[in-house]
Each structure stands twice: as structure tokens, then as C-alpha cells.
Design a protein around this nucleic acid. Structure first.
Lengths: 217, 217
DNA sequence: TAATAACGCTACTGAAGAGTAGCGTTATTC
DNA sequence: GAATAACGCTACTCTTCAGTAGCGTTATTA
């Protein structure tokens, strides 16, 4: 494949399973708390020796970091067609295949959230690679809705607040809500509420306002 | 104080700081992931010897268990006056002093959610001591709203789904939303959206419906 | 074929943390 | 005062896990 490979002598790196290693790291992060994801497990589940993992990534954090980077990005402008309404746009984000769709993506976010608490560089990476692109999407969708006339022009958006509820609901489990439906069901319900409220003007009291934003005066 | 104390000879247990130990355990759980809350820390922060802690609670899990039990319960029917509207009722739940109010309570739920993933008995306890009473409150509030005529009588409630979003938002941090306001601000925004949508009929598509519930036919 | 470097494997080091043993001290009952 | 048991303290055991060392094997280049 790659004819520009380095001309070093000796056996070359076998990169064929690197992607599997990264994916498995994410899988484990979605399943267990960060502290219980061990490199021995990753090695065993991917058929690589632990020492081989350390030849690529110097520390556990660097492996997780690389795994996060390998996730790709949420859908960009071009891949996010205008569905004609704010509700349809938000549902399209939810159902985008990024990270395996809404349920797996949500579980993964839960794991990353916990991992970010254990390592500041990792937290920074999660912010730039996951949070900010995600927030940018919502900002764009709200601009569209304003352009469309669905939302008032004077809207002060509360993007991070909105973004917080859509991608991740780690406490669904705490509330036993998983038995009442999938995570996707939950997100759809939120979207239904949020959009209807925004369009009809949720801001009952000044300063409060709904998740999407508030309108001054 | 207690004249019915056991008549055993020897130095009696000094219970004076037991409550402090339990409270400190919860504080640490709100601050760090479960795996990084150590009994050495609890001992140091409470001025007790680690061995003394083990004379009361046989394992770390039992300590956490006792701490959860010591939290008390969310406000019961009698302590939850009818505020006249669903919105006011929900805000009253949010602002109840249980567990130190909305922000601390939310942080604590985040910690408990993580802890519950590490221990099945602990998960069961969190369900019965935290989740179920909390869910019962929402059920009661929705019944009131139906009685009041605010919500339609044929409502199929989605209580666990609603309960999931109100008490805990561990991923606010992931989305950087904490900088945009307190956790309480977030909950209030959710309530504003959810209530407005429920009252005006959010269920745009059958089967979907908002967080509060859907109406058949 | 010689040199090189990745491979898997086994075995290790070192740190952290749950849980325990033992001891001298202190508060209580009889 | 004697017996008892909790107290704080130090020091330990045991387990888990991040990270490393060394070795025989294998894939590659020159």
C-alpha cells in the first residue's frame, strides 16, 4: 500500500491491528470506569502483547488520547444536510453514525467524562476533539433555525447547556430509565420538548429561558 | 444522652464523629471518581484512625452504603406543598435542601452513579434509597398536574425519563456547560422546556412524546 | 547471509490502596 | 483498683495495575 514507508532496516511495525486496539480501548471505556480499564485487558482482547502496545503509546493516557483522536469528528457542515426544521436537524445529529450511533456514542461519552476527571491533558483533548466540534454543530443548527424564521432573531443561545443534555446521559442508569427505553428514545424526547418550547417561547421568566436560549426584552 | 446504652464494660464507642465520617465520604464521592476515594483520605479528613473506621464498617462498600443511607430521603408528600402549578412544583423539588441543594446534590449523584457501577449491592441500595423515592415524587407531581387540569387525563407518564434529567447531569462538565452557569440553571431550563412542551402537547409524532409523557390517540 | 528491529512471551519493579495485627493509651463498668 | 474494650498509631500483607527488562523468534533491508 504505502510505498513511502520509512527505509529503516528491520521488521516494520505491523499496523494492521492498531485500529482494533483503539476501538477496543473505547469499547472498554464505555463499559467500565476509567480506573478499571487495564492495558492487560486491551492487550488480551486485541491479541497483541502489552509490550507491543507500549512500543506505540508511551502511557495509558496516550493510548486513550489516541483512541479519542481516532474517533473522527461529529458530522461537519457538508455532511449535515438541511432537513427543513430544527427538530429534524437535531434528530439528524442524534442519528448520525458517528461513534456507532446514539446509544454507543452516549455510553462512550460517559466513559470519557469519567476519564477526563483523571487526567488534565486528557480532559483538554476531550474538550477540543469532542466537546467543541459538537457545540459548533448546535450553534450552526440554531443559526439555520433563525435564518429560517423558526426562532426569533434576537435569540441569545445557550449552546453548551443544550449540548450537555443531547449527547450524554450517564445517569440514565441511576434513574433506571434504561429499562424504560433506549438512550436514543431519551434524546428524542428531549428534542421534542426543547424544540417545541423554543419555538413557542419557553422563557416564562426573564433570565431563565429554556435550553436553547432566551430572548431579551 | 442515651441512658439505654448497652451495659458492656470497657470504653464505649465514640459516635460523635460518625456523622462527619459519612458526610466526608459523600463529599469525597462528589469530588473524585469512586476508585480514587480512599479510606486513608476519609480517615485523615475526619481525624479518625483508619482502624477505627474498620471497627464500624467492615468494608469500603459498607461505609459508602451507610453514607448513602444517612442522606435521608427526598422531600415526602407532606413536605412538598402544592405550589399551584407543575412548574412551581418541579422547581420546589429542585430547590429542596435535600443533600445540600441542587448543585451539591447533582455532584453527589454523579459520584454515586459511578460508584454504583463498581458494586452491585451498592447499585441496588442507590436504587431503593435514591432513585425510587425520587421517581415517586415526580409521579406524585404529575398526578397533581392532571388533577389540576394542567395535563390531559390520558397521559402516559415517562417518569424515569423525566427523573433522569432533573437530578443529575454529570456531563455538564464534558460539555463545558458549568462555565455557562450553575447546575441549578440547567435544571431550571429543562423544567421550563419540559413543562411548556407538556402543557402545549409536545408529542409531535406518536410514540415519541416529550420527557413528561405522551397521550394516546 | 548479516544486520536490524518489531513481535509475543514471561517475569519483573514500584506504587497505590484495601484490609489486618499488634501495641500502648484511655474511657468506662463493676 | 481490676477488667474490658475502643482509641490512635505504626507497620504490615495482599492484590491490582502501570510500566519495564530480557529473550528467543520473525519479518524486513542491504
Amino acid at each position: 500500500m504505502n510505498h513511502t514507508a520509512d527505509p529503516r532496516p528491520g521488521r516494520p511495525y505491523d499496523r494492521s491491528r492498531d485500529a482494533l486496539v483503539l476501538a477496543t480501548t473505547l469499547d472498554l471505556l464505555a463499559e467500565h470506569p476509567y480506573g478499571r480499564v487495564t492495558l492487560d485487558d486491551v492487550a488480551a482482547r486485541t491479541g497483541r502483547a502489552k509490550t507491543t502496545l507500549y512500543r506505540r503509546w508511551a502511557t495509558k493516557d496516550e493510548l486513550v488520547l489516541a483512541a479519542v483522536r481516532s474517533m473522527g469528528r461529529p458530522p461537519e457542515d457538508g455532511e449535515l444536510p438541511d432537513r427543513g426544521s430544527l427538530r429534524a436537524d437535531l434528530l439528524a445529529v442524534i442519528d448520525s453514525p458517528w461513534l456507532g450511533g446514539p446509544d454507543r456514542r452516549s455510553a462512550l461519552f460517559t466513559g470519557l467524562s469519567a476519564a477526563a476527571r483523571s487526567s488534565e491533558p486528557l480532559a483538554a483533548l476531550v474538550r477540543t476533539e469532542v466537546t467543541e466540534p459538537y457545540v459548533a454543530i448546535y450553534r450552526r443548527l440554531l443559526e439555520r433555525a433563525v435564518d429560517r424564521g423558526e426562532l426569533p432573531a434576537g435569540l441569545t443561545p445557550r449552546i453548551p447547556t443544550l449540548a450537555a443534555v443531547i449527547p450524554a446521559m450517564s445517569d440514565l442508569q441511576l434513574a433506571g430509565a434504561t429499562r424504560a427505553g433506549t438512550r436514543r428514545d431519551f434524546f428524542v424526547a428531549v428534542v421534542d420538548d426543547v424544540v417545541l418550547a423554543a419555538i413557542r417561547g419557553a422563557a416564562a421568566s426573564p433570565g431563565a429561558g429554556g435550553l436553547i436560549g432566551s430572548v431579551e426584552g
